Simulated assay, not measured.
Amino acid sequence: MTSMTSELAVMAALHAAMATDERVLLLGTGVATRQTALLAAFGAERVRNTPLAEAGVVGCALGAAAMGLRPVVQLQSPLRALDLLAHVPPLGPLSGGQFEFPLVLLAGAGDGLAAAIFRCIPALQVLLPGAPAEAADLLRGALGQPWPSLLLIQP
């Protein structure tokens, strides 16, 4: 029996979340190509390939989150969107509570550089699971939050 990887556990948790909440959608470079089960179950409106322009994709996801959706964005490198992500957390309070930004960013944990950098951004929840089951639990929790989260997973 093969053990489940964190990525597979997160995708299983995402599938369950998408099945119960139509506001949840997945965006990212090649996600519709790699996540064929999600594409088959939820269609191209909720599982969308994006260009490798991560700051632009995160910006679109922010707009979607502000309008009531719960986007999950799979990033190749969160550092490419650093300048935009540094401004995300204060947007909720700056709007006087009119907007929430329930955005979940998924990225590989890599060497820990992203975690060290993003931990310095106030109100951005940085999640570093130690095991596949924990990764799935953290995704489920992050989808229920009104603020942005960055989930860094091991492959």
Score class of each variant (00 low, 15 high):
residue 61 A to W: 00
residue 112 G to S: 13
residue 113 L to D: 10
residue 8 L to G: 09
residue 87 H to N: 10
residue 138 L to M: 15
residue 44 A to W: 03
residue 40 A to C: 07
residue 21 D to N: 14
residue 87 H to R: 12
residue 103 L to D: 04
residue 45 E to Q: 13
residue 52 L to I: 05
residue 50 T to H: 02
residue 5 T to S: 15
residue 138 L to V: 11
residue 110 G to M: 05
residue 105 L to S: 08
residue 92 G to C: 05
residue 73 V to Q: 01
residue 121 I to R: 03
residue 152 L to T: 13
residue 132 P to L: 03
residue 57 V to L: 06
residue 113 L to R: 14
residue 137 D to P: 14
residue 62 L to R: 02
residue 92 G to L: 02
residue 110 G to S: 10
residue 116 A to F: 02
residue 142 A to I: 11
residue 149 S to K: 05
residue 20 T to P: 13
residue 12 A to S: 14
residue 148 P to A: 07
residue 11 M to C: 14
residue 51 P to F: 01
residue 92 G to Q: 04
residue 102 P to D: 10
residue 22 E to F: 06
residue 47 V to M: 05
residue 117 I to G: 03
residue 155 P to M: 04
residue 31 V to N: 03
residue 75 L to S: 05
residue 4 M to W: 02
residue 92 G to N: 04
residue 131 A to Y: 01
residue 29 T to V: 10
residue 62 L to G: 07
residue 93 P to L: 05
residue 83 D to H: 04
residue 105 L to D: 06
residue 102 P to Q: 10
residue 83 D to V: 05
residue 18 M to L: 15
residue 63 G to A: 09
residue 56 G to I: 02
residue 127 L to M: 13
residue 62 L to H: 02
residue 32 A to Y: 00
residue 54 E to D: 06
residue 29 T to E: 15
residue 79 L to E: 05
residue 106 L to I: 09
residue 142 A to W: 01
residue 113 L to W: 11
residue 41 A to V: 09
residue 127 L to Y: 05
residue 45 E to L: 09
residue 67 M to W: 10
residue 84 L to A: 11
residue 21 D to K: 04
residue 150 L to K: 01
residue 132 P to G: 09
residue 34 R to C: 06
residue 113 L to H: 14
residue 80 R to H: 13
residue 135 A to G: 07
residue 86 A to H: 04
residue 64 A to N: 07
residue 101 F to I: 15
residue 118 F to L: 12
residue 91 L to R: 07
residue 155 P to I: 08
